[in-house]
Simulated assay, not measured.
Amino acid sequence: MHKISGAGEFKHELPSHYVDQLTTKSLSVGTYSIPVGETDDQQPHREDEIYVVTTGRATLVTPSRTELIGPGDVLFVPAEEPHRFVDVTEDLALLVFFAPPYTGRHPDLPHPADAS
């Protein structure tokens, strides 16, 4: 059992800030913070993602839809789907769950889970 203190708390770092808080063989979890008015410049990931909005408000944009998001919302983004948080109107903090674990690599690079 692990207790992750501070997970989901907004960290005021510019322009945005991701903190990896736990990594296991099958998943990882971290907190992503985006201050008001800042731009989310992330690239698509090789991992499936679940976001849990802990604080703040913004809009999540994907090729298929646009969603206003706020505290308590849970969002699923499949691996390799382009997505971006825009119009951050309140400091945004998200718990982010990746499966398999996030590697921090560009989607065109080999992923450790793909190794035979």
Score class of each variant (00 low, 15 high):
residue 24 T to A: 10
residue 25 K to I: 04
residue 26 S to H: 13
residue 26 S to K: 11
residue 26 S to A: 10
residue 26 S to Y: 12
residue 26 S to L: 06
residue 27 L to K: 02
residue 28 S to W: 09
residue 28 S to Q: 08
residue 28 S to M: 07
residue 28 S to P: 01
residue 29 V to T: 10
residue 30 G to D: 03
residue 30 G to M: 03
residue 30 G to N: 01
residue 30 G to Q: 06
residue 30 G to V: 03
residue 31 T to G: 00
residue 32 Y to W: 11
residue 34 I to T: 01
residue 34 I to G: 01
residue 34 I to V: 09
residue 35 P to R: 05
residue 35 P to V: 08
residue 35 P to M: 07
residue 36 V to I: 14
residue 36 V to P: 00
residue 37 G to T: 08
residue 38 E to C: 11
residue 38 E to I: 05
residue 38 E to L: 02
residue 38 E to D: 06
residue 38 E to F: 09
residue 39 T to I: 14
residue 39 T to R: 15
residue 40 D to F: 07
residue 40 D to A: 09
residue 41 D to F: 14
residue 41 D to W: 14
residue 41 D to V: 15
residue 42 Q to A: 13
residue 42 Q to P: 00
residue 42 Q to H: 15
residue 43 Q to R: 15
residue 44 P to R: 10
residue 44 P to G: 05
residue 45 H to A: 14
residue 46 R to G: 10
residue 48 D to P: 01
residue 48 D to N: 15
residue 49 E to N: 10
residue 50 I to H: 11
residue 50 I to T: 15
residue 51 Y to G: 02
residue 51 Y to V: 09
residue 53 V to P: 00
residue 53 V to E: 00
residue 53 V to A: 02
residue 53 V to K: 04
residue 54 T to M: 10
residue 54 T to G: 00
residue 54 T to V: 10
residue 54 T to I: 08
residue 55 T to S: 12
residue 55 T to Q: 12
residue 55 T to P: 00
residue 56 G to N: 06
residue 56 G to A: 05
residue 56 G to C: 00
residue 56 G to L: 02
residue 57 R to H: 09
residue 57 R to N: 06
residue 58 A to P: 00
residue 58 A to K: 05
residue 58 A to C: 06
residue 59 T to F: 05
residue 60 L to K: 04
residue 61 V to S: 10
residue 61 V to D: 05
residue 62 T to F: 04
residue 62 T to N: 03
residue 63 P to V: 10
residue 63 P to F: 12
residue 64 S to W: 10
residue 64 S to I: 12
residue 65 R to T: 12
residue 67 E to S: 12
residue 69 I to W: 01
residue 69 I to V: 15
residue 70 G to E: 09
residue 71 P to H: 01
residue 71 P to K: 11
residue 71 P to F: 01
residue 72 G to S: 07
residue 73 D to H: 13
residue 74 V to C: 12
residue 74 V to D: 07
residue 74 V to L: 10
residue 74 V to Q: 06
residue 75 L to M: 09
residue 75 L to Q: 03
residue 76 F to T: 10
residue 76 F to R: 13
residue 76 F to M: 11
residue 77 V to C: 04
residue 78 P to L: 04
residue 80 E to P: 00
residue 81 E to Y: 05
residue 81 E to Q: 12
residue 81 E to I: 14
residue 82 P to G: 07
residue 82 P to M: 07
residue 82 P to R: 09
